[in-house]
Amino acid sequence: MTVSAQVVLFDGFDPLDVIGIYEVLTAGGMVGGEIRPWLVSAEGPRTVPSGTPGIGLTAEAVLDPERPGYVVVPGAVGPVESAPDDDTPTIPVLLARFAQSAAMPLVRRAMENPEVTVATVCGGSVALALAGLLEGRTAVTNSMGNDLLEATGVRVVDARVVDDGDLLSAGGVTSGLDLGLYVLEREAGPRIARSVEAIFEFERRGTVWADRGRVPQPL
C-alpha cells in the first residue's frame, strides 16, 4: 500500500524545506518505495506564496488529518530581524502567524491520530511549539531556534534528525534531505534509501537520534 506524505504549505514557507523532502520522497516512490508526497494547505487547492520573492507552489488538496501516513511541516524564510524601512515579515513573524493559522487545528488532529507521523523541517518545529503542540516532546530545529524550543518545554537534542516516535524533526533547511531519506528507510528499507542517495549524489549527515539503546558512559 502506498504511504501518503502531506507536505503543508503556508504563506511564507521556505521552498527548500518543502522541495528537499518532496523530491526525495518522490524519487523513493519512483524506485519502488511506494510513497507519495502531496502538497496541501489548510485552505485547499491554491497557489501559496513562499517567503522567497517570485516563488510559489500550488497546493493540490486540503490537509487531511485523518489520512494515514505523514504530515510534513516546513519552516519559513525571510529576514531574521526587521530592518529600518523594510516591512518584509521576519521568520519569527511568519512562524507565529502560521502557528495561529487555520492549519494548526488540522495539524493538532493529525498529531492525535495514531496512524499519522508528523515530521518537521527547520522552523516547522518552532511553529508547532508556538502553537503549544510540542511541550514535553523531543525535537530539533535550526540552531537559531533551539532556545525558543526549550523555552516552550521541548527537550532539544543536538542531532541532524530526531526520531520521537510519531514526531520526526530535522534541523536546518538542508536537513530536509536527511529527513526524507530517513522516512524512506523507515517505510521502504535501507536499499531504497541508499538508491535515492545515489540518485541525488547526497550522503546523509549524522546519526538519527532516538530515545532507545544504551546510555553512553562518560569518558
Rank of each mutant, 00 (worst) to 15 (best):
D211N: 13
V3E: 09
V24Y: 06
V162K: 08
G180C: 11
M111Y: 08
G32P: 01
F202R: 14
G124R: 02
T2C: 02
A42Q: 10
A99S: 15
G78H: 11
D86K: 05
T120V: 06
D11Y: 01
P79D: 08
D147A: 14
A61H: 10
T174I: 10
A27F: 09
P114K: 11
E60F: 00
M104L: 15
S175T: 15
E115T: 12
A159L: 05
A27W: 03
L219P: 08
A76N: 06
A188P: 05
V24G: 05
G29W: 03
A119E: 02
V116K: 02
I199F: 08
C122N: 09
A5S: 13
G123P: 03
A76P: 03
W209Y: 15
G20S: 15
A131S: 03
S169L: 06
V62Y: 00
G33S: 07
G12R: 05
G176Q: 09
L25C: 10
A193M: 03
S4A: 15
G54E: 10
L177Y: 14
E150Q: 14
G75Y: 01
A76D: 08
L133H: 00
I91V: 15
E135I: 01
V208S: 11
G153N: 12
G124H: 02
T207F: 08
A193D: 01
F202E: 07
G28E: 06
F13A: 04
E187K: 06
R194K: 13
G145C: 05
A129C: 04
G12S: 08
N113Y: 11
N146F: 00
D87G: 00
M30D: 13
D87K: 11
V24I: 14
V157L: 12
T88F: 01
E197I: 02
T26H: 12
A188K: 02
E150S: 15
V116A: 09
A210M: 07
G51Y: 05
G28N: 04
V18T: 13
S175C: 15
T141R: 00
D158G: 07
A127H: 01
P49D: 13
E81L: 12
P15I: 08
V7R: 02
A42H: 13
P45C: 01
V173I: 15
E197Y: 02
W38N: 03
A131L: 00
A76E: 05
R160Y: 00
D164V: 03
A129T: 00
V121E: 10
A188F: 04
P218C: 04
D11H: 05
L63R: 04
P45N: 00
E203Q: 14
V77Y: 06
R155I: 00
D163Q: 05
T52M: 13
T52S: 14
A188S: 15
A103G: 05
V116R: 04
T141A: 15
L106D: 01
N142Q: 10
